[in-house]
Design a protein around this nucleic acid. Structure first.
Lengths: 225, 225
DNA sequence: GTATTCGTCAATGTATACATAAAGAGATGC
DNA sequence: GCATCTCTTTATGTATACATTGACGAATAC
């Protein structure tokens, strides 16, 4: 599980959490508009904390605040996906290189290693959801090991932006068998402290994933989700 | 001049603009703490728009909102600089590669070309400030040509974060003569549509700049600014 | 029928009053 | 003297009332 308990103190933070989750689950549909007052009533609080939450979510690229037209839940086009995956490719590759340079011990790399095993197992059992979860965990841990807090937050933000798309495409895509080889090779490169190779491996891996995904979206005419 | 007229409609937007500029000029010093009510009074408005502005600035990584301790203007350590420059390196390199792939005409590349000339001229005249301005313009235009809106906003955000440091270090650094060769070569690679070379050139360029800067900060014991 | 203007109204932007909760001072016990 | 507990203080978090503004539609002129 990646989802840590969202300990919510203030209403404002609660609003961010709830709105985020409603965006991810589609309860607030992509491209739909909403008034501050509606959202406030739905969340059982006043407009103030909702407004503040919306500002935060706007900063995270999840909504557009459009004065007098309501807040729009940002839809994702294939062009957006391209933008985002291009950035994820670069930043995760940077993280991979930094992780390699850091010279982590096997113990420190154990989590990463475990997620690869989990992906293997999930694949053998044909359990796509489990695979996706492990894949998420892998990327998350990789970025963590990259040890650059800003990379972590930017990657997190962009991952959030493509979350909905991932849900949709997960069951349309071909089985990611190739993917796991990539992960193992990347892990090996990091173990050996080979930053160049780690960077290149991951770059190639991500680029391939991007292409596949974009094709998929175009093929199914998913121009906005 | 890069600074476009900040046309300010709402107080909230005005607060963002004013606080930003006070952070950049040092009127709000790095590492200092401030109460919402103080800031509100200083800006001649109520706490509400100030709070909203602070949320935005927090999202941009310029301040830390620390309940009951005041808002802290985020200081920059050498470690932060490393993080930021690492990311700028990757994202600008991506932009360079994309610009090359886009196959721009000479006309479309003219602005970029002009900034390189300006840097040359500034160097010959030993005008560091003019050089810095042209350098900024070059990077800005490069990123624009990369045609990825998210790269543009992330690079903009991170550039803001290091703005103060650049002001301080500008007159401490060695003359950037080497830098201009790099820019010309990059421009050539983009002209020729050679994405790989463009990416590599810029990556090397930025990495060198980063190292130089970090050395500089360490040498002068600038551990927080 | 169409375009332009003006008025109306609803949604946002701002101020303010109030509730809440954390930090610090002071007192009290040991 | 030191620690702990409580009380006070004060900054933030939230609700609400009010001001502002821009969208939309009705009305009028052509």
């Amino acid at each position: 599980m990646m989802t840590s308990a969202p300990k919510t103190q203030s209403s404002s933070a609660a609003a961010v959490e709830q709105l985020r989750s409603q965006i991810f689950t589609g309860k607030l549909g992509a491209g739909t508009d909403h008034l501050e007052s509606e959202l406030a009533e739905a969340l059982g609080m006043s407009r103030t904390p909702v407004r503040e939450a919306l500002l935060v979510l706007e900063g995270q690229g999840l909504v557009d605040v459009r004065p007098r037209k309501g807040v729009r839940i940002k839809p994702l086009s294939p062009a957006d996906m391209t933008e985002i995956y291009d950035i994820l490719t670069e930043l995760e590759s940077l993280a991979a290189a930094n992780a390699a340079r850091a010279g982590y011990s096997d113990t420190e790399l154990s989590r990463l290693s475990v997620t690869v095993d989990e992906m293997d197992r999930a694949l053998r059992q044909n359990d796509l959801d489990a695979w996706a979860q492990a894949d998420d965990a892998f990327h998350h841990e990789l970025v963590r090991l990259g040890n650059n807090s800003r990379v972590q937050s930017i990657v997190g933000m962009l991952s959030d932006q493509v979350r909905r798309a991932r849900l949709v495409t997960l069951h349309m895509r071909p089985l990611p068998t190739r993917s796991n080889e990539d992960h193992r090779k990347l892990l090996a490169a990091i173990r050996q402290g080979d930053a160049k190779t780690a960077h290149r491996m991951h770059h190639v891996h991500r680029t391939a994933a991007k292409e596949m995904l974009i094709q998929l979206l175009r093929k199914h005419h998913l121009n906005s989700l």
